[in-house]
C-alpha cells in the first residue's frame, strides 16, 4: 500500500545525514509541570546516542516526542526530514513502521504469546508469515529466550518481558530505534546480549537512541551521551570522557 510514500521516506533517510532534528522543544503538562524545556538536538543517521539523567529528568518524555506519542508544547521535531507532528494517516503510519520503540512499560499484550507479540511489528508492514517466523526465532535466540517462544507474555519475569519488548522494537529492521531503560531488570550477561543486539542493528545502519540509568553500557564507548536535569540539557559529552 502506498509504496511511493515509503520510498520517499527511505530516500530522505539515505540522502540526509540527520535522523532526528529537535529545535527548542518544550513539553509541559497540566497544571505546571515542565517535563522538557528548550531542547535542541541533532542525531545523525547511524549514530548510537545515549540519554541519561535521574528519574523524572524527562528522558521518557523526549523519546515519546520523537515517536509522536506525545506532541511538543513548543518547538520543531523532524524525523528523517519529516515534521512528525504534521504527518497524518498513512504517512504517519509508514514512518512509524520505520521507528522501533522499546517502551519503559513494555506495552506487551499480556495474553498473547511471546512470538505473537514480536510478530505484530512485522505484520503491520505486511511481511510474509515465513519471514516473520524466521525473524522471531532469530531474535529469541539472540536474546536467550528461545524456550519462551510460545509462553504467554504475562507469565514471564520482568527481565524477560523487557527483552521481548526490545525484540519487538528491532524486529521490523527499523531505521530508528528508541529504547527506554533496556537493561533495568537485567544481570550483566543478559545486558551484554541486549547491547550486542543493538550494536548489530547499528551495524545494519539503524540510528539508536537509548535512555538509561546504567552507566556500564556507555562508559567505555565513544558514543555521545546527553544528560538531562529537570527537563533541560545539563551536558553533552562522549561516553569515555
Amino acid at each position: 500500500m502506498n509504496g511511493s510514500n515509503q520510498t520517499a521516506i527511505e530516500e530522505t533517510v539515505n540522502s540526509d545525514n540527520i535522523m532526528i532534528e529537535m529545535i527548542k522543544v518544550s513539553r509541559t503538562y497540566e497544571p505546571n509541570i515542565t517535563a522538557l524545556s528548550d531542547i535542541s538536538l541533532s542525531v545523525e543517521t547511524g549514530e548510537m546516542f545515549f540519554l541519561i539523567g535521574r528519574s523524572g529528568a524527562g528522558k521518557t518524555t523526549l523519546l515519546k516526542l520523537i515517536c509522536n506519542m506525545e506532541v511538543p508544547t513548543k518547538g520543531l521535531i523532524e524525523v528523517a526530514g519529516y515534521n512528525i507532528n504534521q504527518l497524518k494517516g498513512k504517512d504517519l503510519a509508514h514512518l512509524r513502521q520505520k521507528i522501533g520503540v522499546a517502551y519503559q512499560d513494555f506495552k506487551l499484550l499480556s495474553e498473547r504469546t511471546v512470538a505473537e507479540n514480536i510478530a505484530i511489528a512485522m505484520e503491520v508492514s505486511y511481511k510474509k508469515p515465513r519471514a516473520i517466523k524466521q525473524r522471531v526465532r532469530d531474535l529469541l535466540d539472540q536474546l536467550l529466550l528461545a524456550d519462551k517462544h510460545n509462553s504467554i507474555t504475562s507469565d514471564l519475569s520482568r527481565g524477560e518481558q523487557q527483552r521481548v519488548a526490545l525484540a519487538r522494537a528491532v524486529a521490523n529492521s527499523p531505521r530508528l530505534i528508541l529504547v527506554d531503560e533496556p537493561t533495568g531488570n537485567l544481570d550483566a550477561s543478559t545486558t551484554k546480549q541486549v547491547m550486542e543486539l543493538l550494536n548489530r542493528s547499528k551495524m545494519a545502519g539503524a540510528t539508536i537512541v537509548i535512555a538509561t540509568h546504567d552507566a556500564s553500557i556507555y562508559q567505555q564507548s565513544t558514543h555521545r551521551v546527553m544528560e538531562l536535569r529537570n527537563g533541560a540539557i545539563h551536558s553533552l559529552t562522549r561516553g569515555d570522557q
Binding site: H94, Q97, V101, V124
Partner: peptide
C-alpha cells in the same frame, strides 16, 4: 483497546 493502541504505535494504517 490495548492492542489497537499498540497497533497504531507500531505503524498500522487506519485501514489495517
Amino acid at each position: 483497546k490495548d492492542e489497537l493502541e499498540l497497533l497504531r504505535l507500531v505503524g498500522a494504517t487506519n485501514s489495517y
